[in-house]
Simulated scan of single mutants.
Amino acid sequence: MKNYSIRPYTLEDYAIWNDFISSAKNATFLFHRDFMEYHSDRFQDFSLLVFEGEELVSVLPANRVGDTVFSHQGLTYGGFVFDSKIKLGEVIEITKAVLAFLNQNNITTFQLKLIPSIYNAFFSEEIEYAMFLAKAKLIRRDCLSVIDLTKPFTVTKTRKESIRRGEKNKLEIREELNFNLFWNEILIPNLTKKHNSKPVHTAEEIIRLQQKFPKNIRHFNVYVDNRIVAGTTIFITNAVAHPQYISGNEQKNELGSIDFLYNYLITEVFAAKNFFDFGPSHEGNGKKINEGILFWKESFGAKTTVQDFYEVQTSDYHLLENVML
Rank of each mutant, 00 (worst) to 15 (best):
E254F: 11
V155D: 06
G256T: 06
P189A: 11
A203V: 02
L99V: 03
L11D: 12
K198Q: 12
D83P: 02
N18A: 06
A230T: 05
E321H: 07
G286P: 03
E205Q: 15
F82T: 03
I163R: 03
S47C: 03
Q211N: 15
Q44S: 11
R7I: 12
L112A: 05
D316G: 06
Q211S: 14
K137E: 15
P243D: 09
I289K: 10
K273G: 01
A130D: 08
T156I: 07
H242I: 07
T314M: 10
I118D: 00
E167H: 12
F101D: 00
N263V: 05
T10A: 10
K212P: 05
I127L: 15
S162K: 13
F123N: 04
A100M: 12
F35D: 00
G89L: 08
E128Q: 08
F43R: 02
H201M: 09
S315Y: 13
C143D: 14
L209Y: 07
Q307F: 01
A203T: 04
K151M: 11
G301F: 09
R164T: 12
A239G: 03
V91G: 06
S58D: 11
T156G: 02
K198P: 01
G66M: 05
E283F: 14
T76G: 11
T154I: 09
G79L: 04
T314A: 07
D83Y: 08
Q44R: 06
L320N: 10
F70H: 10
